[in-house]
Design a protein around this nucleic acid. Structure first.
Lengths: 337, 337
DNA sequence: ATTATCTACTAAACCTGTTTAGCATTACCA
DNA sequence: TGGTAATGCTAAACAGGTTTAGTAGATAAT
């Protein structure tokens, strides 16, 4: 195990001060009037021996880390995994690394993770915030850290965010079902006060109201296990035989709903029409395919990174907050019916 | 923005030396003969003001970080995302944080990521190694870092790993197809020299050989885009009309295969029987459901963490390497046929 | 000739912890 | 009573960088 070189080793080998080496490596040679000849000599030597500054020491002194903290609800969920992946790639291209972790929508866990990120001197934050996290995030912002939220936002916290037009999306999807002649359209969602969920609910209700149809809303607890969810869906189908269409508020609910419907031996969209929020390979390949509200995954990731980079590069820390709302696409797959 | 407290602030407030504070906070009070009374006073005060040591400074001095580096092939792939998620949870329970990143099976990217992890003083590594990474991983091991591989291993590198019995899995799956009367069984895989892929191929070939059937193997490049893959699969179906069963070497190939088959208007398993390596919700819900070789995802994660924790806690760095091979399960879903 | 300015660097402080080496006291023992 | 041991704590070095403040010598200006 050959010992790692330090900046002092470099300085000693070249008989110069480590200050000089530091200035040169940080591109401050000109500003510090270090001769071109010496700059060349140092860079050459550093490359030759493969010296890499210890970034812990660097972060300790500068308070910067070139690391972005990414907190998503659940990294094993396809929607978040795909966004995380793209964010990782884009950040990487800008010279930033990503540390990510799942919040599980758990406030305390999220608080701990934020504390850990702060502790590791993360430069910026990308977060899908759980409930009751307003204060922690406000603290981050107050302390000057760039924070970009996505998927949902916090009405009480002024910062950048990227969301989709949830209200219109479910309104539109519900209207689509109504136009196809469905009357008993159910909406299955999580009982949540998060903006995206509230808006999705509202879109559904608005469409139903406009057509003077009766709403049928089921709210389930976020922490329900998959098994319990399946049971719940089965019971729902059993007790709501008149329902001829269901709109699911996210991909996980849609997935479990599909399973339950399949178990119940119902046909889609013959017996019951389905629309799920978030598209999914599953919905595309299911026979017959399930109509879905597709979120623009790449665009979301692109905008999140764009906003964060703007904040990271901003000299004046006082810039306007930007709110980006992207359109979704209703991917109709049951048109044959 | 209230300034963060440092250990010096604590020491000054209590009129004692920071050395003493450090010893107490690190549980070395007894060993260092610090009076119980002072210990109590310090702990009380630290709790009161909410002081948390700066872990960067700590890592810089100790070389330890309580962080584990996790490198998976692709975090947006369901198999890896689920394992990563569980590893994250388990590590968290043992007081470790996870940094993860996707290798994309790209050797250079992986090398850079390993360098970054080293640089951030990661304590241990969990890796699904790409090709030609032997030397970098050997270096890690030589330098005393715990390394656990999974999904595949490197024959030339002596370290812990957790894999599944790939050879038997595909042998068994192929035999199942043969027993059901299929004669023209194709195997679609990536052209890869990675152990898991080689073994899967071998299992297929062995079963075909034993039954004196002719192998039909298609190897595609790992970096083929989804679109190209779809085209490729379509062409395959077009040019192999006699094929009555296909075994896919992983979930992604299986997924694309399904799409192609659906486009070609073929029925499963009527026209063509399918088995995919890795189970997937998609395969379960597809109509009719697709038979799959399910890997024991939880068990893989559990064993990976177990091995890594054993190494991290080992006093004698010279312990035996452990190789764990887990069984898969052939989930038969087309038995009706 | 003296002072001011510029050039090309560098010594030392700093970031925030951990660890080593050691220093007063008091207690114990012959 | 002098020497050793135990007790309870601390000063200073250290990890590996960045940044501040400054210095020595050459050149220019007054």
């Amino acid at each position: 195990m050959k010992k790692k070189l330090s900046i002092v080793d470099i300085a000693n080998s070249l008989n110069i001060s480590k200050t000089t080496v530091s200035f040169i490596l940080n591109g401050r040679a000109q500003e510090k009037r270090i001769s071109d000849e010496l700059v060349k000599r140092v860079l050459q030597y550093v490359k030759e021996v493969g010296y890499k500054p210890n970034s812990l020491a660097k972060s300790l002194r500068t308070g910067k880390s070139n690391i972005i903290g990414l907190l998503v609800q659940d990294i094993s969920n396809h929607f978040f995994a795909t966004i995380a992946r793209r964010i990782e790639d884009l950040a990487y291209q800008s010279g930033y690394k990503i540390i990510y972790s799942s919040t599980d929508n758990d406030t305390q866990k999220t608080q701990e993770l934020i504390a850990m990120f702060r502790d590791r001197h993360v430069d910026g934050y990308i977060i899908t915030p759980p409930d009751n996290i307003e204060e922690d995030i406000s603290d981050l912002i107050k302390d000057g850290f760039p924070v970009v939220l996505f998927d949902r936002y916090l009405p009480k916290v002024a910062t950048d965010y990227v969301v989709v037009d949830n209200l219109f999306s479910t309104f539109n999807a519900t209207q689509y079902l109504i136009d196809k002649g469905h009357k008993n359209i159910a909406f299955i969602t999580y009982s949540s006060i998060q903006t995206q969920m509230m808006e999705r609910l509202e879109g559904y209700e608005k469409a139903m109201r406009q057509s003077k149809l009766k709403s049928n809303i089921t709210e389930v607890d976020f922490h329900t296990t998959d098994q319990a969810l399946l049971k719940l869906m089965a019971d729902f189908l059993e007790n709501n035989k008149n329902v001829d269409a269901i709109l699911f508020a996210n991909n996980h609910l849609g997935k479990c709903g599909l399973k339950a419907i399949r178990k119940a031996g119902k046909s889609v969209p013959g017996d019951i029409a389905l629309i799920a929020f978030d598209d999914y390979e599953l919905f595309e390949l299911y026979t017959p395919a399930v109509t879905a509200i597709a979120q623009p995954i790449d665009e979301i990731a692109d905008n999140v990174i764009k906003l964060l980079m703007e904040r990271l590069n901003a000299t004046a820390s006082e810039q306007k907050n930007q709110h980006i709302t992207l359109a979704t696409e209703l991917i109709i797959r049951d048109s044959s019916n």
